[in-house]
Design a binder for these strands. Structure first.
Length: 424
RNA sequence: GGAGGGGUCGCAUAGUGGUCUAGUGCGGCGGUCUUGAAAACCGCUAUAGCCGCAAGGUUAUCGUGGGUUCGAAUCCCACCCCCUCCGCCA
């Protein structure tokens, strides 16, 4: 959420953000500003009227019985007038609040303009592409021949985009996750196990709602299932006031992630690349205000994710996402894409975004600065490792001519084995 | 799921319709005293908005949302959360 004062003073900037993020038509900024002006004017009138009511009430309690009757009549009139005005005020407020939720964050100055993913810029590439003396299999073929990925039975039980991981595949997944978690702990992050069914307000708070509500499952109780631990971790301090000395808050959490993947029916249909349920280690940072600081941490957190890929010796590249391919709430976003030999292309495995105060305003997370002034924190989040997608990358990149898959060296102390061989 | 108790200022607690403009204690900040400190004493001690150059005034907020009333922390309704006990359960 942006400050209404900012929106009023920077109408054209906000309109441009709507346009650049391909969100035109979702909210009318002129209408919003006009409504808010009307609201402010009415609010002033209402407050004057409340003042009148309050002073009349006070008089009634002090005055003699004879005078009382007269004042009571007057007070009743004021009350009725006030009720009408307050009704209108409430309606205005609801409309404004509803519209405010649709106002996106303004992209940072260095975010390139683009209508879709084609506008993204590759800004970094790392790792040597593996060379195979044979035609590399895709992760599903590998997983099936190794007996570690079973999408057929997954689909039998849970429908399309469900899967089983079995045996050493399951253990390798756990190794990746634990390795990733350990790396973040080494960076000073606090590991967290988080709730994954949350009140919808936290999805609004993190900016997943209203834009992405279609992609979330809901419970009978009206909660939604998280698509990422970011929602839980970022909301951890919702409605709280931190002291500046507590910042930066560094959290890492592992959680199941649930995504309906509506609108993506034809996309990535093979294997376990795009699934309804996966596991992810996420990193979230809360910072004092200041864009320079956020940018510094944004890059630093990108580095933590790169560390994982480097340690796994997986080739990857980093994309600076364009306006049309970033989230409504995001200020700037990097995606990391990891090499998938079977497709001879890089595929998204990580996403790193900073928000400035956008999420903190919605979630009401503030801190007291050194002068005792209350300010909103700035938030950033990034993937550390998401499986089975990253597992799939490991399988493909580490496959051997004999059909086996060797285990990345850094994971061997976690797995206890150094290769996965074809099932008999 | 059932029964009972409870949610008030940073913390603890008082407050059953009108000086509640929310009392008191603790903590915190400032001051007096002191060589210094402690103790004692005095003062201050929320957030957001509006009007105002300022001083100040004003509106809202006692878990949340409705309602009753001229007036609600206080009465009524719904919901949320916490505690105790019972049931169920990894």
């Amino acid at each position: 959420m942006l400050d209404i004062r900012y929106i009023k003073e920077n109408k054209e900037t906000v309109k441009k953000a709507l346009h650049d993020k391909q969100l035109e038509g979702t909210v009318d900024i002129d209408e919003l500003v006009n409504l808010h002006d009307t609201y402010s004017e009415l609010l002033r009138k209402v407050e004057l009227h409340r003042n009148l009511r309050n002073s009349l009430s006070k008089d009634i309690s002090r005055v003699s019985p004879e005078e009382k009757a007269k004042l009571l009549d007057e007070a009743k009139n004021v009350k009725e007038e006030l009720q009408e005005m307050e009704e209108e005020l409430k309606n205005l407020k609801e409309r404004i609040d509803g519209m405010m939720l649709w106002v996106p964050n303004v992209p940072a100055a260095d975010v390139p303009y683009g209508e879709n993913e084609e506008g993204n810029k590759v800004i970094k590439q790392d790792g040597t592409l593996p060379e195979f003396t044979f035609k590399p299999k895709d992760h599903l073929d590998l997983g099936e021949s190794l007996g570690i990925i079973d999408t057929k039975r997954g689909a039998k039980l849970g429908g399309f985009r469900s899967y089983f991981l079995a045996g050493k595949g399951m253990l390798l997944e756990q190794a990746i996750l634990r390795f990733a978690l350990d790396h973040m702990i080494q960076q000073g992050f606090t590991p967290m196990n988080v709730p994954v069914m949350l009140d919808k307000k936290y999805f609004v708070g993190t900016g997943y709602f209203p834009w992405g509500s279609e992609d979330h499952y809901t419970t009978q109780e009206g909660q939604a299932l998280v698509g990422t631990a970011e929602v839980s971790l970022t909301s951890y301090y919702a409605d709280e006031v931190l002291d500046e000395s507590q910042l930066p808050v560094l959290l890492t959490g592992q959680s199941p992630c649930f995504r309906r993947e509506v609108g993506g029916y034809g996309k990535d249909t093979k294997g376990v690349f795009r699934v309804h349920y996966f596991t992810k280690v996420e990193q979230v940072v809360l910072l004092p205000e200041g864009e320079d600081l956020s940018r510094e941490w944004h890059d630093k957190m990108l580095g933590y994710a790169e560390d994982i890929l480097k340690a796994l010796r997986l080739p990857y590249r980093v994309l600076l996402m364009c306006t049309g391919d970033m989230g409504a709430g995001q200020r700037k976003k990097y995606d990391i894409e990891t090499w998938f030999p079977s497709q001879e292309s890089y595929k998204e495995t990580h996403s790193d975004s900073y928000f400035l105060e956008f999420q903190a305003r919605r979630l009401n997370i503030r801190y007291k600065d050194r002068e005792g002034k209350l300010k909103y924190v700035s938030t950033i989040n990034n993937t550390v490792a998401a499986t089975p997608r990253l597992l799939a990358a490991v399988l493909e990149n580490y496959q051997q001519e004999d059909g086996s898959v060797s285990v990345p060296e850094v994971l061997r102390s976690y797995t206890g084995f150094d290769k996965i061989e074809p099932a008999r």
